[in-house]
Design a protein around this nucleic acid. Structure first.
Length: 121
DNA sequence: ACAATGACATAAG
DNA sequence: GCTTATGCCATTG
């Protein structure tokens, strides 16, 4: 697995339950503010037996942009609602209320160090 | 190395 | 608010 994907997964795992992050936000944490599309690609390539909470990653508008038709949007929405996230009538999430604040610098530092030591995940 | 692709983001109509 | 167009980036063939 390519390093970039691993880094994406590692960050996504840090998203606490009941919170959501955007693709662009994750990309920015990795040092590529414009690599949101690649983050989305990483989610798409994510194996089902993974422990990565992919459902907590949505687009910048608080909407679920999944086009993974095998498990439509309602599936992802159900997973998020189970964590306490509330969807608006138009199917949007209030990022101001449920948006992930991101990682603190110590956490980012720990993330980087962990990446250097363990290549598996 | 080149071209195509895609769970995005943002600006414009 | 919705649709189109353009930019971005890593991965793949």
């Amino acid at each position: 697995m390519s390093s970039f994907f691993q880094r994406v997964y590692r960050v996504v795992r840090r998203i606490p339950p009941g919170k959501v992050a955007t693709y662009g936000q994750i990309a920015a944490l990795l040092g590529y503010p414009r690599a949101a599309r690649t983050v989305g690609w990483a989610m798409h390539a994510l194996p089902e037996d993974s422990d990565v909470p992919w459902q907590r990653v949505i687009n910048a508008q608080g909407r679920i942009s999944t086009s993974w038709q095998e498990h439509d949007v309602s599936h992802q929405q159900r997973l998020l609602e189970a964590e306490g996230i509330v969807f608006g009538a138009d199917g949007r999430v209030d990022l101001a209320a449920f948006g992930w604040e991101g990682l603190t610098w110590p956490e980012i530092d720990e993330l980087q160090r962990g990446e250097a030591e363990s290549s598996l995940d």
